[in-house]
Design a protein around this nucleic acid. Structure first.
Lengths: 137, 137
DNA sequence: TTCAAAGTGTAGCGCAGGCTACATTTGGCT
DNA sequence: AGCCAAATGTAGCCTGCGCTACACTTTGAA
């Protein structure tokens, strides 16, 4: 019975975070695509995520409302300072998770896939443990 | 450019899995609540996940369509054999992830929370690495 | 037995992500 | 300049998860 109270906290957290994950994925992608040469367009993100340009468009609109990106019609997508900060944080975390998976013996391709899924659910504390372990080798 | 093809696979996968995660969480919860004495009711799941009974009701309906659970109006929720199998698999995977986090030095409470988020994104290969590491201590 | 509380079901709303189909703008090439 | 293809925008639909409000069963206690 009091099990429920104890359990509900983790679950509640997991559930809500979903739309945040997408925001993180997008700013990460915008950062990566932008630095990779030219600018980041809707079509780039559509290819990157394997979704239609419509989905990208609406999501970018949401991110703009949240102050993470900046766009004008038919113009490239840029990160705001806030978006840049988030992207940097995510990129760093992503790298830590990826390197950690490699460190425990996961093959690079699997590590790349799993890191994508895992990164959003790793708390700072756990991330610390990842760093500590990776650097121990 | 060919970067995109390489990248889109991991992302596509991550994205789709979301509704599957909830199915996994539900069968896991039903299994846990049911074995903990009496039967699993809508209200139990609502408390467990910290959501309204309406949300539980609809989700249980979906899971019934997918053949994971069985219910009749005003009756308890039971797992089908298929649901039981999934629940067992998830429980095992969950435990592995949790124990692994403890093994690398994460505190129990944080490990419980992070395990909830991480478990759905761990591939069999990575899970193997987790097992190997945990048993190495 | 009766009746109120707890549990469950249903209607209907919002948000977010997915899509196709169609309209519009850009941009490059002849 | 003109035109076509690619990129972008818009309309409208579906699914899934979240909710409140309200209706209906179950159930236990007076």
């Amino acid at each position: 019975m009091s099990e429920h109270a104890k359990q509900s906290l983790p679950h509640r957290r997991t559930r809500h975070d979903h739309s945040t994950e997408i925001a993180e994925d997008y700013v990460e992608a915008v950062a990566e695509i932008t630095t990779e040469g030219s600018s980041c367009r809707v079509v780039d993100l559509a290819k990157y995520f394997g979704v239609s340009h419509v989905t990208v468009n609406r999501t970018v609109g949401r991110l703009q409302n949240e102050g993470l990106v900046k766009t004008e019609p038919y113009k490239p997508i840029k990160l705001t300072p806030k978006g840049k900060r988030l992207a940097d944080k995510c990129r760093e975390r992503h790298e830590i998770v990826y390197q950690f998976l490699l460190a425990i013996g996961v093959d690079p391709q699997t590590a790349a896939i799993d890191a994508e899924g895992i990164e959003h659910h790793v708390s700072p504390k756990t991330l610390d443990c990842f760093v500590r372990y990776s650097s121990k080798l």
